[in-house]
């Protein structure tokens, strides 16, 4: 049965997206799934982006996870992150698409 997202869930998703670092993490995990915290930090160094502490990255990952956008699994004893885009698709379906497809205006 399809249960529509409530406002709290939509808030968590949109809030998770409302930050350039978190959007960057999503972009990176899209290109290269299954990354540890260390790898996500290393990728951020590799791209020459803004230097962020591990603690800061951990907080960003927590927000993405609370929004349901991260899938966390284990490789041996190491925690591995990848994207779960289902909640994003659902949020797009019930909010963006409503306005973009049904709107009469250009």
């Amino acid at each position: 049965m399809f249960v529509a997202m409530n406002d709290d869930e939509l808030d968590r998703i949109f809030r998770a997206l409302a930050d350039p670092t978190r959007r960057k993490i999503i972009d990176r995990l899209r290109e290269q799934p299954d990354q540890s915290l260390f790898q996500i930090c290393a990728m951020s160094v590799a791209e020459g982006g803004k230097a962020l502490s591990r603690q800061a990255i951990t907080q960003h990952l927590d927000m993405l996870q609370n929004a349901g956008l991260l899938h966390v699994s284990w490789s041996g004893r190491t925690k591995i992150h990848s994207l779960d885009l289902k909640p994003l698709r659902e949020a797009a379906d019930i909010w963006f698409r409503k306005h973009l497809l049904e709107g009469e205006n250009p």
Binding site: F38, A42, M43, A46, G48, G76
Partner: peptide, 25 residues
């Protein structure tokens, strides 16, 4: 040897990470 990070560039270095079988990366 089992690797957790395959060869990758990170700024001024190229690196890998492996498991030392004694509880460390």
């Amino acid at each position: 040897v089992s690797f957790t990070v395959e060869p990758m560039d990170a700024g001024p270095v190229r690196m890998v990470v492996f498991d030392d079988t004694c509880g460390n990366l």
